[in-house]
Design a protein around this nucleic acid. Structure first.
Ligand code: FES
Ligand code: FES
Lengths: 156, 156
DNA sequence: CTATTAAAAGACAAAAAGGTCTTTTAATTA
DNA sequence: TAATTAAAAGACCTTTTTGTCTTTTAATAG
Protein backbone atom coordinates (compact mmCIF):
# COMPACT_ATOMS: atom_id res chain seq x y z
CA UNK A 1 0.00 0.00 0.00
CA UNK A 2 2.27 2.79 1.23
CA UNK A 3 5.94 3.39 0.45
CA UNK A 4 8.50 2.03 2.89
CA UNK A 5 9.31 5.59 3.88
CA UNK A 6 5.69 6.22 4.81
CA UNK A 7 5.51 2.98 6.77
CA UNK A 8 8.65 3.83 8.75
CA UNK A 9 7.34 7.33 9.38
CA UNK A 10 3.99 5.98 10.61
CA UNK A 11 5.55 3.42 12.90
CA UNK A 12 8.17 5.87 14.12
CA UNK A 13 5.77 8.66 14.96
CA UNK A 14 3.33 6.33 16.69
CA UNK A 15 6.18 4.93 18.78
CA UNK A 16 7.40 8.41 19.67
CA UNK A 17 3.92 9.46 20.71
CA UNK A 18 3.47 6.35 22.83
CA UNK A 19 6.76 6.98 24.61
CA UNK A 20 5.97 10.66 25.03
CA UNK A 21 2.75 9.67 26.79
CA UNK A 22 4.91 7.72 29.22
CA UNK A 23 7.05 10.80 29.80
CA UNK A 24 9.93 9.52 27.68
CA UNK A 25 11.63 11.16 24.70
CA UNK A 26 13.14 8.33 22.66
CA UNK A 27 16.32 8.72 20.64
CA UNK A 28 16.93 7.52 17.12
CA UNK A 29 18.70 4.28 18.03
CA UNK A 30 15.86 3.19 20.28
CA UNK A 31 13.17 4.15 17.79
CA UNK A 32 14.75 2.32 14.88
CA UNK A 33 15.30 -0.78 16.99
CA UNK A 34 11.76 -0.82 18.36
CA UNK A 35 9.97 -0.27 15.06
CA UNK A 36 12.29 -2.67 13.23
CA UNK A 37 13.53 -0.17 10.66
CA UNK A 38 17.00 0.61 9.25
CA UNK A 39 18.70 3.04 11.64
CA UNK A 40 20.34 5.58 9.36
CA UNK A 41 17.39 5.62 7.00
CA UNK A 42 15.00 6.18 9.86
CA UNK A 43 17.22 9.06 10.97
CA UNK A 44 17.00 10.68 7.59
CA UNK A 45 13.24 10.31 7.53
CA UNK A 46 12.69 11.74 11.02
CA UNK A 47 15.06 14.58 10.21
CA UNK A 48 12.92 15.49 7.22
CA UNK A 49 9.78 15.37 9.36
CA UNK A 50 11.37 17.69 11.91
CA UNK A 51 12.25 20.15 9.15
CA UNK A 52 8.65 19.96 7.95
CA UNK A 53 7.41 20.77 11.43
CA UNK A 54 5.74 17.45 12.22
CA UNK A 55 7.75 16.89 15.36
CA UNK A 56 10.57 18.34 17.41
CA UNK A 57 14.01 17.04 18.26
CA UNK A 58 16.72 17.86 20.78
CA UNK A 59 20.41 17.26 20.32
CA UNK A 60 22.94 16.11 22.91
CA UNK A 61 22.53 14.24 26.15
CA UNK A 62 18.95 13.47 26.99
CA UNK A 63 18.03 14.39 23.44
CA UNK A 64 15.50 12.65 21.27
CA UNK A 65 12.24 13.13 19.44
CA UNK A 66 8.85 14.26 20.56
CA UNK A 67 5.72 16.23 19.88
CA UNK A 68 5.08 19.54 21.52
CA UNK A 69 2.37 19.24 24.20
CA UNK A 70 0.35 21.88 22.43
CA UNK A 71 0.45 20.21 19.02
CA UNK A 72 -2.95 19.22 17.68
CA UNK A 73 -3.47 15.58 16.66
CA UNK A 74 -1.75 14.73 13.39
CA UNK A 75 -3.96 13.06 10.77
CA UNK A 76 -2.22 10.30 8.85
CA UNK A 77 -3.28 12.13 5.72
CA UNK A 78 -0.90 15.03 6.38
CA UNK A 79 1.97 12.64 6.91
CA UNK A 80 1.19 10.64 3.79
CA UNK A 81 0.88 13.71 1.58
CA UNK A 82 4.19 15.01 2.87
CA UNK A 83 6.10 11.77 2.41
CA UNK A 84 4.73 10.20 -0.76
CA UNK A 85 2.28 12.62 -2.30
CA UNK A 86 -1.33 12.16 -3.28
CA UNK A 87 -1.27 9.41 -5.90
CA UNK A 88 -2.71 6.85 -3.53
CA UNK A 89 -5.44 9.22 -2.34
CA UNK A 90 -6.56 10.83 -5.58
CA UNK A 91 -5.05 8.86 -8.49
CA UNK A 92 -6.98 6.89 -11.10
CA UNK A 93 -6.73 3.11 -10.71
CA UNK A 94 -6.53 2.75 -14.46
CA UNK A 95 -3.66 5.22 -14.66
CA UNK A 96 -5.50 8.02 -16.46
CA UNK A 97 -3.84 11.39 -15.96
CA UNK A 98 -6.49 12.29 -13.44
CA UNK A 99 -9.59 10.75 -12.00
CA UNK A 100 -12.41 12.73 -13.56
CA UNK A 101 -15.99 11.79 -12.67
CA UNK A 102 -17.09 13.23 -15.99
CA UNK A 103 -14.80 10.91 -17.92
CA UNK A 104 -14.65 7.86 -15.69
CA UNK A 105 -12.36 4.96 -16.50
CA UNK A 106 -13.86 1.45 -16.52
CA UNK A 107 -12.85 0.96 -12.89
CA UNK A 108 -14.04 4.29 -11.56
CA UNK A 109 -17.46 3.44 -10.19
CA UNK A 110 -16.19 0.50 -8.25
CA UNK A 111 -12.82 1.95 -7.28
CA UNK A 112 -13.83 5.44 -6.18
CA UNK A 113 -15.77 4.21 -3.12
CA UNK A 114 -12.76 2.20 -1.98
CA UNK A 115 -10.46 5.17 -2.42
CA UNK A 116 -12.99 7.32 -0.57
CA UNK A 117 -12.94 4.89 2.32
CA UNK A 118 -9.17 5.13 2.41
CA UNK A 119 -9.35 8.92 2.36
CA UNK A 120 -11.79 8.83 5.22
CA UNK A 121 -9.52 6.54 7.21
CA UNK A 122 -6.41 8.67 6.83
CA UNK A 123 -8.35 11.88 7.46
CA UNK A 124 -9.85 10.68 10.73
CA UNK A 125 -7.11 8.45 12.14
CA UNK A 126 -4.28 10.38 13.76
CA UNK A 127 -0.86 9.46 15.11
CA UNK A 128 -2.28 10.12 18.55
CA UNK A 129 -5.34 7.92 18.06
CA UNK A 130 -3.16 5.08 16.81
CA UNK A 131 -0.75 5.53 19.69
CA UNK A 132 -3.40 5.02 22.31
CA UNK A 133 -4.35 1.37 22.01
CA UNK A 134 -7.94 2.59 21.94
CA UNK A 135 -9.97 4.02 19.10
CA UNK A 136 -8.52 3.06 15.77
CA UNK A 137 -6.99 -0.26 16.69
CA UNK A 138 -10.00 -1.82 18.34
CA UNK A 139 -12.67 -3.68 16.35
CA UNK A 140 -15.45 -1.15 15.73
CA UNK A 141 -18.16 -3.26 17.36
CA UNK A 142 -19.36 -4.93 14.16
CA UNK A 143 -21.77 -2.55 12.60
CA UNK A 144 -20.61 -2.18 9.02
CA UNK A 145 -19.25 -5.74 8.83
CA UNK A 146 -17.49 -5.49 5.49
CA UNK A 147 -17.40 -3.62 2.27
CA UNK A 148 -16.95 -6.12 -0.52
CA UNK A 149 -19.81 -7.88 -2.23
CA UNK A 150 -18.24 -11.25 -1.46
CA UNK A 151 -18.61 -11.20 2.32
CA UNK A 152 -17.65 -14.82 2.78
CA UNK A 153 -14.16 -14.19 1.45
CA UNK A 154 -13.37 -11.27 3.70
CA UNK A 155 -11.39 -11.49 6.87
CA UNK A 156 -11.31 -8.84 9.53
CA UNK B 1 -2.38 2.70 -6.48
CA UNK B 2 -0.88 0.25 -8.95
CA UNK B 3 2.57 0.30 -10.55
CA UNK B 4 2.91 1.94 -13.95
CA UNK B 5 3.54 -1.48 -15.43
CA UNK B 6 0.24 -2.76 -14.05
CA UNK B 7 -1.60 0.30 -15.32
CA UNK B 8 -0.17 -0.11 -18.82
CA UNK B 9 -1.00 -3.81 -18.76
CA UNK B 10 -4.57 -3.11 -17.66
CA UNK B 11 -5.16 -0.44 -20.29
CA UNK B 12 -3.41 -2.49 -22.97
CA UNK B 13 -5.34 -5.68 -22.37
CA UNK B 14 -8.66 -3.86 -22.17
CA UNK B 15 -7.91 -2.12 -25.47
CA UNK B 16 -6.90 -5.40 -27.11
CA UNK B 17 -10.08 -7.07 -25.91
CA UNK B 18 -12.21 -4.19 -27.17
CA UNK B 19 -10.58 -4.35 -30.60
CA UNK B 20 -10.85 -8.13 -30.70
CA UNK B 21 -14.57 -7.79 -30.12
CA UNK B 22 -14.65 -5.62 -33.24
CA UNK B 23 -12.81 -8.33 -35.18
CA UNK B 24 -9.48 -6.48 -35.11
CA UNK B 25 -6.09 -7.64 -33.83
CA UNK B 26 -4.17 -4.49 -32.91
CA UNK B 27 -0.41 -4.22 -33.21
CA UNK B 28 1.98 -2.76 -30.68
CA UNK B 29 2.28 0.68 -32.27
CA UNK B 30 -1.48 1.15 -32.34
CA UNK B 31 -1.94 -0.12 -28.79
CA UNK B 32 0.72 2.10 -27.28
CA UNK B 33 -0.62 5.12 -29.12
CA UNK B 34 -4.23 4.49 -28.11
CA UNK B 35 -3.59 3.83 -24.42
CA UNK B 36 -1.06 6.68 -24.21
CA UNK B 37 1.85 4.54 -23.03
CA UNK B 38 5.54 4.45 -24.03
CA UNK B 39 5.85 2.20 -27.07
CA UNK B 40 8.92 0.11 -26.38
CA UNK B 41 8.02 -0.31 -22.73
CA UNK B 42 4.53 -1.43 -23.64
CA UNK B 43 6.09 -3.92 -26.02
CA UNK B 44 8.21 -5.39 -23.28
CA UNK B 45 5.21 -5.66 -20.98
CA UNK B 46 2.95 -7.32 -23.54
CA UNK B 47 5.78 -9.68 -24.47
CA UNK B 48 6.03 -10.78 -20.86
CA UNK B 49 2.25 -11.29 -20.69
CA UNK B 50 2.38 -13.45 -23.81
CA UNK B 51 5.13 -15.58 -22.26
CA UNK B 52 2.97 -15.93 -19.14
CA UNK B 53 0.07 -17.11 -21.25
CA UNK B 54 -2.28 -14.18 -20.68
CA UNK B 55 -2.64 -13.46 -24.37
CA UNK B 56 -1.40 -14.50 -27.79
CA UNK B 57 0.58 -12.70 -30.44
CA UNK B 58 1.36 -13.16 -34.11
CA UNK B 59 4.44 -11.90 -35.91
CA UNK B 60 4.69 -10.45 -39.38
CA UNK B 61 2.15 -8.89 -41.68
CA UNK B 62 -1.30 -8.76 -40.17
CA UNK B 63 0.23 -9.66 -36.84
CA UNK B 64 -0.78 -8.27 -33.47
CA UNK B 65 -2.16 -9.20 -30.10
CA UNK B 66 -5.31 -10.96 -29.03
CA UNK B 67 -7.03 -13.40 -26.74
CA UNK B 68 -7.99 -16.84 -27.89
CA UNK B 69 -11.74 -17.11 -28.37
CA UNK B 70 -11.83 -20.01 -25.93
CA UNK B 71 -10.01 -18.14 -23.16
CA UNK B 72 -12.03 -17.68 -19.97
CA UNK B 73 -12.45 -14.13 -18.63
CA UNK B 74 -9.28 -12.84 -16.99
CA UNK B 75 -9.75 -11.43 -13.47
CA UNK B 76 -7.69 -8.31 -12.81
CA UNK B 77 -6.36 -10.13 -9.77
CA UNK B 78 -4.41 -12.62 -11.89
CA UNK B 79 -2.85 -9.82 -13.89
CA UNK B 80 -1.93 -7.81 -10.79
CA UNK B 81 -0.36 -10.77 -9.03
CA UNK B 82 1.68 -11.58 -12.12
CA UNK B 83 2.93 -8.05 -12.69
CA UNK B 84 3.47 -6.55 -9.24
CA UNK B 85 2.87 -9.26 -6.67
CA UNK B 86 0.53 -9.35 -3.71
CA UNK B 87 1.68 -6.50 -1.50
CA UNK B 88 -1.27 -4.32 -2.38
CA UNK B 89 -3.73 -7.19 -1.84
CA UNK B 90 -2.43 -8.77 1.34
CA UNK B 91 0.17 -6.43 2.89
CA UNK B 92 -0.13 -4.65 6.23
CA UNK B 93 -0.80 -0.91 5.97
CA UNK B 94 1.54 -0.30 8.89
CA UNK B 95 4.33 -2.26 7.22
CA UNK B 96 4.40 -5.20 9.60
CA UNK B 97 5.98 -8.28 8.03
CA UNK B 98 2.55 -9.75 7.53
CA UNK B 99 -1.00 -8.84 8.31
CA UNK B 100 -1.96 -11.18 11.12
CA UNK B 101 -5.45 -10.87 12.61
CA UNK B 102 -4.11 -12.30 15.85
CA UNK B 103 -1.52 -9.53 16.14
CA UNK B 104 -3.25 -6.61 14.44
CA UNK B 105 -1.45 -3.31 13.89
CA UNK B 106 -3.21 -0.11 14.98
CA UNK B 107 -4.66 0.32 11.51
CA UNK B 108 -5.84 -3.23 10.97
CA UNK B 109 -9.48 -3.04 11.96
CA UNK B 110 -10.13 -0.05 9.80
CA UNK B 111 -7.81 -0.96 6.92
CA UNK B 112 -8.67 -4.62 6.46
CA UNK B 113 -12.23 -3.91 5.22
CA UNK B 114 -10.87 -1.50 2.64
CA UNK B 115 -8.32 -4.01 1.45
CA UNK B 116 -11.04 -6.66 1.35
CA UNK B 117 -13.14 -4.41 -0.85
CA UNK B 118 -10.19 -4.03 -3.20
CA UNK B 119 -9.67 -7.79 -3.25
CA UNK B 120 -13.30 -8.27 -4.09
CA UNK B 121 -13.08 -5.74 -6.91
CA UNK B 122 -10.06 -7.28 -8.58
CA UNK B 123 -11.41 -10.80 -8.13
CA UNK B 124 -14.75 -10.06 -9.78
CA UNK B 125 -13.79 -7.49 -12.41
CA UNK B 126 -12.22 -8.97 -15.52
CA UNK B 127 -10.50 -7.58 -18.58
CA UNK B 128 -13.56 -8.64 -20.52
CA UNK B 129 -16.03 -6.97 -18.19
CA UNK B 130 -14.04 -3.74 -18.31
CA UNK B 131 -13.80 -3.93 -22.09
CA UNK B 132 -17.54 -4.00 -22.56
CA UNK B 133 -18.72 -0.58 -21.46
CA UNK B 134 -21.29 -2.42 -19.37
CA UNK B 135 -20.96 -4.02 -15.97
CA UNK B 136 -17.96 -2.63 -14.15
CA UNK B 137 -17.91 0.83 -15.62
CA UNK B 138 -21.51 1.77 -15.04
CA UNK B 139 -22.68 3.32 -11.78
CA UNK B 140 -24.03 0.42 -9.69
CA UNK B 141 -27.49 1.91 -9.25
CA UNK B 142 -26.82 3.53 -5.88
CA UNK B 143 -27.35 0.84 -3.33
CA UNK B 144 -24.21 0.87 -1.24
CA UNK B 145 -23.60 4.58 -1.76
CA UNK B 146 -20.22 4.80 -0.10
CA UNK B 147 -17.93 3.14 2.33
CA UNK B 148 -16.36 5.82 4.44
CA UNK B 149 -17.93 7.16 7.60
CA UNK B 150 -17.73 10.70 6.24
CA UNK B 151 -20.23 10.39 3.41
CA UNK B 152 -20.40 14.08 2.68
CA UNK B 153 -16.79 14.18 1.63
CA UNK B 154 -17.02 11.31 -0.82
CA UNK B 155 -17.40 11.70 -4.52
CA UNK B 156 -18.46 8.95 -6.84
C1' DC C 1 11.84 -17.02 -53.04
C1' DT C 2 12.05 -12.20 -51.72
C1' DA C 3 10.62 -8.16 -49.60
C1' DT C 4 8.12 -6.46 -46.03
C1' DT C 5 6.06 -6.36 -41.80
C1' DA C 6 5.75 -6.91 -36.91
C1' DA C 7 6.79 -9.22 -32.64
C1' DA C 8 10.78 -11.29 -29.56
C1' DA C 9 14.86 -10.71 -27.24
C1' DG C 10 17.89 -8.42 -24.72
C1' DA C 11 21.36 -4.75 -23.94
C1' DC C 12 21.47 -0.34 -22.09
C1' DA C 13 20.22 3.81 -19.47
C1' DA C 14 17.60 7.19 -16.60
C1' DA C 15 14.99 8.02 -12.53
C1' DA C 16 13.13 6.90 -8.17
C1' DA C 17 13.15 4.38 -3.95
C1' DG C 18 15.63 2.49 -0.40
C1' DG C 19 19.68 2.37 2.43
C1' DT C 20 24.60 3.26 4.48
C1' DC C 21 28.12 5.95 6.39
C1' DT C 22 31.07 9.94 7.72
C1' DT C 23 31.43 14.53 9.27
C1' DT C 24 29.47 18.48 11.52
C1' DT C 25 26.72 20.88 14.88
C1' DA C 26 24.49 21.55 19.14
C1' DA C 27 23.21 20.32 23.70
C1' DT C 28 24.23 18.42 28.36
C1' DT C 29 26.96 17.04 32.19
C1' DA C 30 30.91 16.60 34.84
C1' DT D 1 35.69 24.54 29.90
C1' DA D 2 36.18 19.76 28.30
C1' DA D 3 34.21 15.41 27.35
C1' DT D 4 30.35 13.18 25.93
C1' DT D 5 26.16 12.47 23.76
C1' DA D 6 22.89 12.63 20.09
C1' DA D 7 20.78 14.83 16.14
C1' DA D 8 21.74 17.37 11.41
C1' DA D 9 23.66 17.35 7.12
C1' DG D 10 24.95 15.46 3.21
C1' DA D 11 27.86 12.37 0.31
C1' DC D 12 27.56 8.05 -1.53
C1' DC D 13 25.74 3.52 -2.81
C1' DT D 14 22.27 -0.36 -4.18
C1' DT D 15 18.08 -1.96 -5.94
C1' DT D 16 13.89 -1.45 -8.31
C1' DT D 17 11.14 0.71 -11.55
C1' DT D 18 10.58 2.81 -15.75
C1' DG D 19 11.96 3.58 -20.22
C1' DT D 20 14.81 3.41 -24.86
C1' DC D 21 16.89 1.27 -28.59
C1' DT D 22 19.07 -2.23 -31.63
C1' DT D 23 19.20 -6.72 -33.40
C1' DT D 24 16.97 -11.05 -34.32
C1' DT D 25 13.21 -14.08 -35.50
C1' DA D 26 9.00 -15.33 -37.58
C1' DA D 27 5.07 -14.62 -40.40
C1' DT D 28 2.75 -13.03 -44.59
C1' DA D 29 2.08 -11.07 -49.24
C1' DG D 30 3.51 -10.53 -53.64
S1 FES E 1 -11.30 7.79 -13.58
FE1 FES E 1 -10.20 6.01 -13.05
S2 FES E 1 -10.64 5.85 -10.95
FE2 FES E 1 -11.77 7.64 -11.47
S1 FES F 1 -1.89 -6.15 10.71
FE1 FES F 1 -1.62 -4.22 9.74
S2 FES F 1 -3.26 -4.27 8.33
FE2 FES F 1 -3.53 -6.17 9.33
Amino acid sequence: MFHKETEYALRGLVYIQQQNELGHRPGLAEIAREIDAPGFYTGKILQRLVRQGFLTSRKGKGGGFGFGRDKPPLPLRDLILATEGNKILTGCAFGLKECDQDHPCPLHYRYAPIRNALNDLVATATIQSLAGSLAASVPPAREKPDIGSNPDKNIN
